[in-house]
Design a protein around this nucleic acid. Structure first.
Lengths: 338, 338
DNA sequence: TATTCCGATAGTGAC
DNA sequence: GTCACTATCGGAATGAG
């Protein structure tokens, strides 16, 4: 189902965000709520929506209660499979036909990368066939974007926003995001995603949060009217939105992830530095100036190899990745309790 | 029991060798014979032997049959211990008192190395108290030397000859072996050791040897008079004798080992190169000329890091140690069958 | 910078 | 080069009929 049309409607995303903001606020601190699959009819408020324009959140029947929270991630593999876990994840139901990973323009940015190995095209299946994935992986589908869980999350919450317009997703992020209309759409969708991520983070962590204690206690009584609940910790500032300066995956993807970098899947120095140096370009910084040093390849390579620095306390760890990892465990405990 | 006297008797070792040569020839191809512990009274033929001058081979009562073969090594650890296997091996019965590893002259070569850690002095216990070790580890004791199995053999047979004279064992090999009388004694003992090693090698490998087939077949009939047995493969040329140019162990030790470099304990490039580059100095090359390049430290460091080359076929393996290891498995099969 | 596997390289600690 | 442990660093394959 190739997408030939890429409809930009600056008003539509805003409306969606407004709806979700309200819901996120309502439910973000309720750990039990997100346990149910959900679908938000509030997100369908866009004007004159053709069938293609439907915004869906998977994993629930139309009759289930509305929510902007996202379903909890599946439990981590207890005993990770020996081989090809990555490729299996990328083709969960069947092997996609070979033609499915050949982009429209064989000379495009994406096509050039695909020649080196099919893994680089793994995101395309999500873009073209989000319906083939379970709700635990694909969180939200719009005509313009697909929002998925990163299969190898580098933080407690780590989502990917995938634009569906081939003209854009085959470009380098710097180029694609220099298109103002496209940028506006992606930014709006990314903010929606950030709210979902914040809600999921609240679901997981607010039980440990000192600043959420009053709210948690009130919720526990079951007697406090919802509108009278004290506010809990605001997790939205803990969510970061951006792209990698030189992605390996062929198709444009925007990272939406929590600040903590606490994950078993964070295994290498480059993993960490790709999110904690200028290699990570906040979406807010686009469009990039022509002379922005972050366009420079050599500069970015140097970033990935840089000495490790804790995002929370600024302590340096040189090349001692394992030491940083242990330190991040400690920082996570502190961060959770804020 | 410090040894204050170091008696050199050029004739004695030769006589020992002659006796052992005969025995080695007799029994070297009999795989079952070496299974019994043994002691050779033939090795006691030295003139005017005081009690200290007794040559012993452990592991047998005086009444057991004479043999120059050495007892088979204990089976390799089925499940190697997690920690400190090395140190346990070095102190099999008890922890030696701290003073035991302090050499006489605190400014000696050995003492300098000992400051960095006691492992460097691990050989001293064998030198001073060979009786504290089982016969499977200490093969032969003379007033001048102790012959032990290398605890981490880098070849099918790997022995260490340890001089017992502090004045010599605390020197760098180049210096100690510039003493002609000392060199003559060590050389003679090393040749004895080489014959023991050859006999052990024959015990282990002659069953696979094509050139030993006639002898093996004749032995199997049980009807051929011993003196009429066809000769088997001569394993003595497969034994190499030498020292490392820059040993890590503090006390002088001469390596006597089979040519094959086939061992689970051979784990690093330096292991291999220390025996297969000029870093390995054949005992026959001593005394070293003043300008011998093998005295040069930088040269020797370079040797340890050199590209790997198969000793058998000359094939190069660059830095691919694992590949060389697999290749050595193949070469071992061929070499066994010669 | 996709992951994973394998392996080479480097530093340490041992008392 | 003593060993053994931990970790860092580096390349290659990955799909598929």
């Amino acid at each position: 189902m190739p997408l030939h049309m890429f409809i930009l409607n600056a008003n539509q995303p805003n409306r969606i965000i407004q709806s979700l903001r309200a819901l996120s606020h309502q439910f973000s601190a309720n750990p039990s709520f997100a346990m149910t699959g959900s679908r938000s009819d509030h997100t369908k408020g866009a004007k004159s929506p053709p069938p293609d324009d439907t915004v869906t959140q998977q994993g629930a029947s139309p009759s289930s209660p509305a929510s902007s929270s996202i379903a909890p991630p599946p439990p981590p593999d207890p005993a990770p499979k020996k081989r090809n876990a990555f490729l299996e994840l990328m083709s969960p139901k069947h092997k996609s036909p070979k033609t499915a990973v050949i982009p429209a323009d064989p000379h495009s940015h994406a096509a050039a990368k695909l020649k080196k190995g099919s893994y680089r095209g793994a995101l395309l299946e999500y873009i073209q066939h989000p319906d083939r994935f379970p709700a635990s992986q694909v969180l939200r589908t719009t005509p313009n974007t697909v929002l998925i869980r990163d299969a190898f999350p580098k933080a407690t919450v780590h989502l990917l926003l995938l634009p569906r317009s081939p003209a854009h997703y085959e470009q380098h992020p710097h180029e694609a995001l220099s298109d103002p209309a496209f940028l506006a759409t992606i930014r709006a969708e990314a903010e929606t995603a950030a709210r979902l991520a914040a809600a999921e983070l609240a679901r997981q962590l607010s039980p440990f949060s000192a600043s959420s204690k009053a709210r948690n206690d009130a919720l526990a009584t079951g007697t406090v009217p919802y509108d009278d609940l004290p506010a809990g910790r605001d997790y939205l500032p803990e969510i970061r939105i951006g792209v990698h300066a030189h992605p390996s995956m062929a198709h444009l993807h925007v990272h939406i992830l929590s600040r903590d970098m606490h994950s078993d899947r964070l295994k290498h120095r480059k993993h960490y530095n790709s999110f904690n140096t200028p290699f990570f370009v906040p979406l807010a910084d686009y469009p990039l100036a022509e002379d922005d040093e972050r366009r420079d390849s050599a500069f970015q390579n140097a970033n990935l190899g840089r000495d490790l620095v804790c995002w929370a306390c600024g302590k340096g760890f040189g090349n001692k990745f394992a030491e940083l990892k242990r330190h991040l465990d400690d920082e996570f405990e502190l961060w959770k309790k804020r």
